[in-house]
Design a protein around this nucleic acid. Sequence first.
DNA 1: GCATTAACACGTA
DNA 2: TACGTGTTAATGC
Length: 224
Amino acid sequence: MISEEQFLTSVFWAQELPRDEQERARRGITLRTVEAGAYLIHRGDRIDNWTGVVTGLLRLGSITTSGKAVTYAGLPPSCWFGEGSLLKDEPRQYDVLALRRTQVALLNRATFHWLYENSVAFDRLLVRLINERLGQFIAQVEHDRTLDSAGRVARSLASLFNPVISPFMGSHIDISQEEIGLLAGVSRPVANRVLQELEKAGLLRNEGGGVTILDLERLRYYGE
DNA sequence: GCATTAACACGTA
DNA sequence: TACGTGTTAATGC
């Protein structure tokens, strides 16, 4: 179980629940650390938790039959995921890999289902998140087919700062150019070149192991 | 052409 | 020493 203070500061949806439901949710959450390069979830695993990123960075994706890594989304701090597998009670469809040492919060299955059955506030939260994620993935399919590498890097960076999905993000993220390349599906030299291009355009600031976003709206539509 | 990999130099924690 | 960044050369689709 996590402390009340940790619950309120690291779980963005805590305040959306009435007091008694908050307390029930808090008692159902445990913390866990995943080392850099380790898998939190393998494709085919049975899922027993709804999972939130507290610190660090995860990559949602899979490996194609030809062995190529495909990224579906970066999962930054304050992002919660895995509700699909819990609601459908089916094995996990994708891999979740820690790009760096990452702390996650795990809400156990029983508590998740209790909230799902009994809390209007929790259901509204789920609908909002699923709706937003659907829009994000549809946009991503379009962009992967139309944008060049600069647009894809800009897009995948911008998607980390989605205020519905990861509301605690602010404007800075600790992420190396190597990791940006892994998320955007480009090599590090390309990520490096694009980041300099985006900095020249005034959309972000490169800070060595991190990036500060200066203009999220233009970053989101860069290259269109 | 544009991207990738491998390699090297450089600065910093 | 380890890591992140900037850059180049060789190579492939």
